[in-house]
Design a protein around this nucleic acid. Structure first.
Length: 345
DNA sequence: AACTTAATAT
DNA sequence: TATATTAAGT
């Protein structure tokens, strides 16, 4: 159906060919409109109703069902799906079990585009901070607009006064899974460190529900890590930063970022999003062809990779980095289905 | 308004 | 401990 939409347009070329890489870098992220345009094209390429198995249709052929003594599935409707998601959520919560859907088919390095899934979120612990069902307290004095808009636009997309799953995931603590972190690093690398600012990173990561604050916080830590690594140029990363250590580190650091506030890059030049001043030369930075994420939204329920209509979603890989091992607070995979960024502002 | 950093809170 | 939030500066 959408096969006319050429994926190659979105792709970054292999770092072997630096010219091509540079060209790609300059062409792919000309400006925000360009990104939006590509998202639009991506959306056009989404399967339409004809491509999707209707909820009313059983996934298991009747012969199979009877051969394996599988009781016939009841007819599902959208509401059932939502409720199932909600139930899953609840049971995970009450059991306190960790639940993760990693999909890292052992090729951790080959940055294949299929290996993303599931930004996870942790329920805030303790009853303290205005949790419960109606938690909307502090917000007021904040810049409010940004955060609320970003987070909410993702949620509200499917929320129509019902959809319990959307209600359940208010503001929860984001878990930076290796996959999510990798996407982060990829984006930072491609932006070049100069341009890698929270908002831009957030947009290019294209992860629904991810806020600028999420990114800023992570970026802050990431920079500290990079700085440390630069200082100790020779030795490997310490055991404490497994997460960061698991990803290639861009060589160049922001020039003379010697403390103090931001460099002058802040407000003024937000147009030149993706323009990387220098081509990214190091294969280690972006080892292979790196399709950027414009055509693939990651959202809180897993992300859809639309080549072949195959949705990558495998379960069972352990979180090996940043094991988020604390018992307090369950890790959940958010169940609601959201259309990929409809509105990239 | 967005960014950075440090400090602090959860 | 990892992440969020706040504060104060650019």
């Amino acid at each position: 159906m959408g096969e006319e939409v050429k994926i190659s347009e979105f792709e970054f070329n292999s770092a072997e060919d630096e010219e091509a890489t540079e060209k790609a870098n300059t062409t792919v992220f000309d400006n925000e409109d360009d990104v939006d345009q590509r998202v639009l094209e991506w959306e056009i390429g989404l399967p339409d109703c004809d491509d999707l198995t209707p909820l009313s249709q059983s996934l298991i052929p009747p012969e199979f069902a009877s051969a394996f003594s599988i009781s016939p599935e009841p007819c599902r409707k959208a509401l059932d799906v939502n409720r199932a998601s909600y139930d899953t959520l609840s049971s995970i919560r009450s059991s306190g079990a960790h639940f993760s859907t990693y999909n890292d088919n052992k090729n951790n390095n080959n940055n294949d585009i299929c290996s993303f899934d599931d930004p996870m979120v942790v329920e805030p612990e303790g009853g303290g901070s205005g949790s419960g069902s109606g938690s909307e307290p502090k917000k007021l004095r904040k810049t409010g607009v940004d955060i609320a808009e970003e987070a909410d636009s993702a949620v509200r997309t499917t929320e129509n006064s019902e959809d319990p799953s959307a209600m359940t995931l208010k503001r929860q603590r984001l878990v930076w899974t290796p996959q999510l972190h990798k996407r982060f690093v990829d984006v930072v690398a491609h932006l070049g460190i100069k341009n890698a600012v929270p908002k831009t990173i957030m947009r290019l990561m294209n992860v629904e529900g991810l806020t600028r604050e999420n990114v800023a916080s992570h970026l802050q830590k990431y920079r500290i890590y990079l700085k440390r690594m630069q200082g100790l140029s020779n030795q490997g990363p310490s055991a404490s930063d497994q997460m960061f250590a698991s990803t290639p580190v861009p060589r160049s650091l922001p020039e003379s970022r010697s403390g103090g506030g931001g460099n002058g890059l802040a407000g003024g030049s937000r147009k030149d999003d993706g323009h990387v001043g220098m081509p990214i030369p190091m294969p280690s930075l972006v080892p292979l062809a790196m399709p950027m994420y414009g055509h693939m939204a990651m959202h809180l329920g897993g992300y859809h990779n639309r080549q072949n209509g195959y949705e990558a979603n495998s379960y069972g890989m352990q979180p090996r980095y940043w094991p988020c091992g604390n018992k307090s607070g369950s890790v959940v995979s958010l169940p609601n289905h959201m259309p990929p960024n409809h509105k990239l502002s």
